[in-house]
C-alpha cells in the first residue's frame, strides 16, 4: 500500500505564473538573486505578479513587495529585465527598504 505525493504543491509560484499566462494575462517574475546581512528570504525566492497587480510568493517579509510590484508593472510594459536593489545602503530605497537592516537584489523579468 503506497501513496504518491505530487512534488508541485498547490501554491506553486511558477505554476500560478504559467496559469495566468495561459489565461491571457501578462506576467512578471521576481527572484531574489543576492542577500547581504539579515535578509528575510534567501536567494532563489520568487514572486510572480500579474498585470493587475495580483501576486503569489515572496521576496521579503512583505517589506519590499509593494515596490517590486510597481517595477514589475513597468517591466511588463517595457519587456526589459532589471535588477532592483533594496536595503540600508541605498538611502533613496530606504522608504521601501528592509527594516531588518539587510540588503537584497531582486531580478525582475517579463514572462514572454
Amino acid at each position: 500500500m503506497t501513496e504518491t505525493t505530487s512534488i508541485l504543491p498547490d501554491d506553486d509560484i511558477l505554476a500560478q505564473a504559467l496559469n495566468w499566462k495561459k489565461n491571457g494575462r501578462d506576467v512578471a517574475l521576481a527572484t531574489v538573486i543576492n542577500t547581504w546581512g539579515s535578509a528575510p528570504r534567501p536567494a532563489g525566492s520568487q514572486l510572480a505578479i500579474d498585470e493587475t497587480g495580483q501576486m503569489v510568493g515572496s521576496v521579503s517579509g512583505g517589506c519590499v513587495e509593494g515596490a517590486v510590484i510597481q517595477e514589475a508593472l513597468e517591466i511588463i510594459k517595457s519587456g526589459e529585465p532589471k535588477t532592483l536593489e533594496f536595503g540600508v545602503s541605498n538611502d533613496e530605497a530606504w522608504e521601501v527598504g528592509l527594516a531588518c537592516g539587510g540588503k537584497i537584489n531582486v531580478f525582475v523579468e517579463k514572462l514572454d
Binding site: S6, I7, L8, L14, A15, A17, L18, K21, L29, T31, I33, T83, F107, E109, K110, L111, D112
Partner: peptide, 26 residues
C-alpha cells in the same frame, strides 16, 4: 523568461529531475 522555457522547467520539476535555471543578469 520565455513561456516555453518555463513549461520545460515545470516538466523537469514534475519529473523530479535536478535542474538549474541559468539567467544572465546583464
Amino acid at each position: 523568461m520565455k513561456t516555453t522555457l518555463l513549461e520545460e522547467l515545470q516538466q523537469a520539476r514534475a519529473d523530479k529531475r535536478q535542474v538549474v535555471l541559468a539567467t544572465n543578469l546583464a
